[in-house]
Write a protein that binds this DNA or RNA. Structure first.
Lengths: 352, 352
DNA sequence: TTGTAGGCGTTATCAG
DNA sequence: CTGATAACGCCTACAA
């Protein structure tokens, strides 16, 4: 407006240069202190807990900080306090789309509350999981375990160290977020019964899966209530491929409707059945579990019991952050509702 | 063997107790030093760079460390060195399954090489992206940007600070990992031409997407070569829903085959077209891009140009780690191959 | 080979 | 309200 300025006047680089910083290393509270003419500890106070410093020095310091483009060094901060504003999420299998939504939910609420998410996976191995957990424990303020495969004792041991929240499984003494199968499952079974089915099959997931057992129990309970016969079938792995492989057993079982441990199994099963010329749902009804991404891509689109995975991720993160901030229950299970999503893969049998 | 020991003798807790640690705070190199009867700096040496200490003291120290169940404090280590054994990955949209393979690839190679992956997303916003990047820069050794939306200059600025690798986009002076559209796209167009199509449409992605432009160029080039007419259509967002909304324009365009910026668009488009009673591929062929999870769930399964997303993630991570370790080129693009995955959604028109 | 001493950037505890 | 000063746990010259 008046006089020409040097090219970088007023910029952070300019300020840094002006104040003798080499621009490579970052500004520290000492640099700010020097410019603002106060002590470094005052700067620390002003920048961490606002209000404990006089308004004018506060402003002085903030200006200097802005000028230097100052950012706290998280490590230096973590050293005395132990806080990192970071939490870990360990999922059983990054490959499994079930976890996509969980990751998303957790990441979103993390950044919303100014936390950073660190991600790791266990590849379905209890040992790998424990290793990953131990590793993360050193760097994070808390940990979320999604469908953990390690045993309860290990989880409790971790939880003694730092806040831990478990998703998709109940562990005594540890805060958990678990979809309650009851509602969704009874809706599903009732729907099936209403469509004239008498015998249904449940295709189970991995034996280590806590949730698979809960779902089987739910199927049994609901079947009993609706006076249906329920049989249990095993699967090799909870994937599309695993689903394909169960087609044989499903047909042999004589069930006219099948519920699967998860959507992947359902999709594989449906593919295999259709390939064998069996019409879904005219000859057999299929109901999945979770409502993962892509469940509605199939023809017919998959009927499924939706687990609010995103909610679980977000809920667990919220729970953890509350724990970290002193609020929130130290333990207990947060139950989230499941619901039937009725699409095309289930319905009435076509009478031959 | 000789005398009765206390119940927890030999355990970490026992050792900690025996040596006066309260079991809450973690053991430090000083604790080890005391037990091993050496100086803390010797412990530091023994534990970080093996070989710079005599075999016997080395063993002494290692035993003490094991006894105390010692783990380095990453922050304390990071403070003097600046190294965190951590790198960041920022994806444009956690919602988009395209990125899950990338995340998986990066996570896997990260843990393989004993690094930890920190995840963040930009929600397709250049500003959010930059904020996230800045935030991560403070805590990580390097950064991977998957389909970044911010401009080249910002990326280069970040890259001046710490190693940065870009996926799905080319930025001058920054190491990149980019799928080369050429091969896959020419295969696709040739296949279409071979099936008697004369006019094809390209449904573009977001204007900020560098990759969308490359794909359009690729479509044009391949079309020219095969003497096809190519028209470009815009989309609102690169999602299933966005795909549905383009159905109208696609029909109006008069094209008999359409390539889309990504699979999500293709799936949405196919759903909408089929809902309108148009048969795929009998009346119109659809080819997606990427081959995301679920692309083969549709009926007919989606023909698509596969981008090796997992490879990109892994490649970028490897590249980054090499950079971090002094090996590897400082810049230049690593090109990975695309290929046509011929499934059911493309083919010959059914002559009316 | 090993010990000594200083520093990395913040926070916290005291005085003043 | 603000200024010294001592941790926090580890690394790294430098010296012995």
């Amino acid at each position: 407006m008046t006089e020409p300025k040097t090219p970088d006047a007023g910029t952070a680089a300019g300020a840094a240069k002006k104040h003798g910083r080499d621009g490579k290393s970052n500004a520290t509270i000492y640099d700010i202190a020097r410019i603002a003419g106060v002590n470094a500890s005052t700067v620390s106070r002003a920048l961490s807990k606002p209000g404990r410093v006089s308004p004018k020095t506060q402003k002085l310091i903030e200006d200097a900080a802005a000028e230097l483009n100052y950012h706290v060094n998280p490590f230096a901060r973590a050293l005395p306090t132990g806080k990192t504003n970071t939490f870990g999420l360990i999922v059983a299998d990054i490959t499994n789309p079930t976890f996509f939504d969980i990751i998303r939910g957790a990441e979103t609420t993390a950044t919303d509350r100014d936390y950073t998410l660190v991600l790791a996976e266990s590849a379905e191995s209890p040992a790998t999981e424990l290793t990953a957990a131990r590793r993360l424990m050193a760097t994070v303020d808390g940990l979320i375990l999604a469908s953990p495969r390690m045993d309860d004792d290990n989880i409790r041991a971790l939880a003694r160290d730092k806040p831990v929240v478990v998703i998709n499984r109940e562990v005594e003494g540890v805060p958990c977020v678990v979809p309650d199968v009851h509602k969704g499952l009874s809706e599903a079974v009732r729907s099936l019964a209403g469509n004239g089915h008498h015998k249904i099959a449940y295709v189970a997931g991995p034996p280590e899966s806590w949730m698979s057992e809960r779902r089987w129990e739910g199927v049994q309970a609901a079947s009993e209530w609706s006076r249906l016969e329920a049989v249990r079938l095993e699967s090799t792995k909870p994937t599309v491929d695993g689903g394909r492989q169960t087609a044989r057993d499903v047909r042999a079982s004589g069930a006219t409707a099948v519920l699967t441990y998860n959507d992947l199994l359902a999709i594989g099963l449906m593919q295999e059945l259709q390939a064998a010329g069996i019409s879904v749902p005219d000859q057999i009804s299929i109901v999945g579990f979770d409502d993962i991404f892509g469940a509605d891509f199939t023809t017919p689109p998959l009927t499924t019991v939706r687990s609010p995975l995103g909610e679980c991720g977000a809920g667990a993160a919220t729970r953890l952050l509350d724990l970290l901030h002193g609020t929130g229950e130290p333990a207990g299970t947060l139950s989230v509702e499941t619901e039937l999503v009725l699409r095309g893969s289930s319905g009435r049998m076509l009478s031959a």
